[in-house]
Design a protein around this nucleic acid. Structure first.
Length: 175
DNA sequence: CACTCGATCAGCG
DNA sequence: CGCTGATCGAGTG
């Protein structure tokens, strides 16, 4: 029911991410289709988003999101974030994501540490589930969460992406 | 409500 | 290294 109102592309060095906005902020961010490997290019390419039809509010958020995403991908600290719309998500998930936002660039935490941070130390596996449900990857740094032994753990959108993102932040982990 | 499945983890052999 | 049990949230019927 929380329909996404606008979907705008963000072109990065990695390809075209798609940002979804609701009336409350950025609600979802999609990874680029695997570098044209499989993606035959959206043939509905002519989705001409005349910027005229987009509320200035959304455009403002989009500028912030674009800047933040590009900075993140370059391994830098974003200077400003758009508001994130987590409506419709559970309290547990929101608390997990909020905890992830606090992981500084270049650092990592384990699923267990996140669980402890949100005062639910036994919910380790549930934390993993919440990470996978994260609608705004990269910006909400789910990639900075590793397994307790500093091994990679998993990543719903592909471990390669996780490796890649970590590499840009010069994060070390166990093979 | 009952059951299943995970991006877990510590313990043990 | 591999196996196991404990445990929690979410999804399904």
């Amino acid at each position: 029911m929380k329909a996404t109102l606008f979907e705008l592309p963000i072109t990065t060095s990695d390809g075209e991410y798609i940002a979804h906005y609701s009336e409350k902020g950025l609600a979802e961010l999609d990874f680029p289709n695997l570098d044209g490997l499989i993606a035959p290019k959206p043939n509905k390419s002519g989705r001409a988003v005349s910027s005229k039809s987009i509320p200035t509010q959304i455009l403002k958020w989009h500028r912030a999101a674009t800047d933040a995403l590009r900075k993140m991908l370059a391994g830098r600290e974003p200077k400003e974030f758009p508001p994130l719309d987590w409506s419709g998500k559970t309290k547990f998930q929101k608390s997990v994501w909020q905890a992830m936002l606090k992981i500084p660039l270049g650092k990592t935490k384990s699923y267990g540490e996140i669980a402890a941070a949100i005062r639910n130390p036994k919910a380790v596996r549930a934390v993993g589930g919440a990470c996978g449900a994260n609608p705004i990857p990269v910006l909400v740094p789910c990639h900075r969460v590793l397994a307790a032994n500093k091994k990679l753990g998993g990543f719903s959108s592909g471990l390669d992406r996780k490796r890649d993102l970590l590499a840009r932040e010069n994060v070390q982990y166990n093979a």
